[in-house]
Design a protein around this nucleic acid. Sequence first.
DNA 1: ACGAAAATCACCCGAAAGTATGAAAGCCAA
DNA 2: TTGGCTTTCATACTTTCGGGTGATTTTCGT
Lengths: 149, 149
Amino acid sequence: MKKLLLYGTILALLTILLQLAEYRFLVIDHTVELYVGIVALIFVVLGVVMGKKLTTPKEVVVEKLISVSSNPSLPFLVNEMVLDKLGISKREHEILLLIAEGMSNQEIADKSFVSINTVKTHVSNILVKLDVKRRVQAIQKARELGIVP
Amino acid sequence: MKKLLLYGTILALLTILLQLAEYRFLVIDHTVELYVGIVALIFVVLGVVMGKKLTTPKEVVVEKLISVSSNPSLPFLVNEMVLDKLGISKREHEILLLIAEGMSNQEIADKSFVSINTVKTHVSNILVKLDVKRRVQAIQKARELGIVP
DNA sequence: ACGAAAATCACCCGAAAGTATGAAAGCCAA
DNA sequence: TTGGCTTTCATACTTTCGGGTGATTTTCGT
């Protein structure tokens, strides 16, 4: 709710500024109508900004289905889209590949130059993101999704 | 974009209305500052409304991934020769298949109507015969040898 | 420069996996 | 029928995995 105060302050300041400016030249050089128009314009813009910032954007959830047909053909290209969709980071993907190689957490830790605890954390996150319970299942699913060979 | 025109029109009309009203009583009864304040307030509100209406409600598209398991080619035939060569029994092969399904020892035990201890024994023997250390590696090797899909 | 996301690490605990050893029962062929 | 193989099961022990929590540091985009 600090935003409300902020906007209120800005509003007040703007008003004061305009009122000060009024006595300098606006009332002299221009008609009152023009002045009012400018004020209106400024505050419309301000209103729009406020509205955008203060309004919680209503989220409409639309489910879309993407079929991932695994390619039994040759070269194997990582399906980046799937990685994005699942929120799997680079590091996580690296470790996923090592898991698919049949390596233990300790071996992965050694190969990656990190502690086994770190590996464990990554693995846990991977399991969650792939929505599986065991690393074996993770390998399967990852293969189906085209993110491991 | 019709909305833009609509709001533009409303804005113009409001301005005109206010200007008309000005000559009737506002300039007489009140100071210019108050008048400006009222205008500002009105247009702030209008701005907020515009902002809300004109802003495309954010759609959060949640894309779900369906893995279309690819089985276009071979029906998979078990390489019996390899099984003989490695001395893997029928029972062991059955369990190997279940391992490759990503099942835990307990799940395999339930499905096979044997105790988990029995499964463990089989698994241990399988690991030895495939010359691997972990079940994940067993799956890989078995797949390479053509004894699991 | 700031905040969010990513990466790192630690500790605890329980579950799962794997090792070792032993043993009983059934099958099958020499 | 005897010896070899398979299948079954158990007990005990060690290692690996996975969940949960919390913390610090890095990185990166605005």
